[in-house]
Amino acid sequence: MRILVCLSNVPDTTTKVKFIDNLTKLDTGGIQWVINPWDELSLTRALELKDDAAHNIQQVTIAHVGLAGSEPTIRKALAIGADDAIRVNADPRDAYFVAAQLAEVIKINPYDIILCGIESSDYNGSTVGGMLAEFLGIPSVSSVSFLNIENGQVLIHREIDGGKEILTLPTPFVAIVQKGITKEPRIAAMRGIMMARTKPMKVTEPVATGPLTEVLKYELPKPHAACKFFDPEHPKQLVEMLQNEAKVI
């Protein structure tokens, strides 16, 4: 069995994003790039499954659509423990474009389990995983909070409103993972960092397909009115405010 982890390279959430060219482009200066937190977790889960010899997982591969600038992030994933990586050398223009590229990679070289994160912290689409599954014509399960292999069968927990479903499905499929998939992301050990340098990273060129959407302009959040403070001894004034002015209770 082979697992593919789709990896998105995102600015760390704590970076203050800024825009240039009349608010049409992200200012990449000073940005700290990281593996999208969900992808870090799905990679960790893939490696945990591989660690158990009983599951017979031969390979955990990273797939990424992005320009050469994302290579340090991919190397980090290799250092954490992925076996190899494929980078499609293109600017990830929109989710449709990215999913189409990933689909090509998988058509040429199929995987049994394909993992995507529930959302990337840049464009917050929650879309690439589902799109990829549709391009490939294979099942997808969203909101996956648990994934295991038991007696050769894949067992998945899917979050639903106020609970969860426990389900199985045949491979190949795309699982779109969220909180719960594993506890803590695995971090790279020194040995892993050394080994990552020589692990294979294949670069392929994109296929022609148009993005369907395009960001025209960014906007920074409007600074809102300063917080109005109330006396800790008399929170009644706050409650009155919430009832009469804000009208929310």
């Binding site: 929109d94 989710a95 449709y96 999913a99 529930i118 917050n124 689409g125 929650s126 879309t127 690439v128 995983g129 589902g130 799109m131 599954a133 549709e134 391009f135 997808s140 399960v141 969203s142 909101s143 979050e159 639903i160 409103d161 779109i176 369907l212 959407t213």
Partner: peptide
């Protein structure tokens, strides 16, 4: 843009070649 919409909309987007405005 809830659990259900996130599961269905992306597939629908590819199926219908319809650009997706998510969230």
């Amino acid at each position: 843009n809830n659990i259900m919409g996130k599961a269905l909309a992306p597939r629908l987007s590819v199926r219908m070649k319809a650009g997706l405005g998510a969230g």
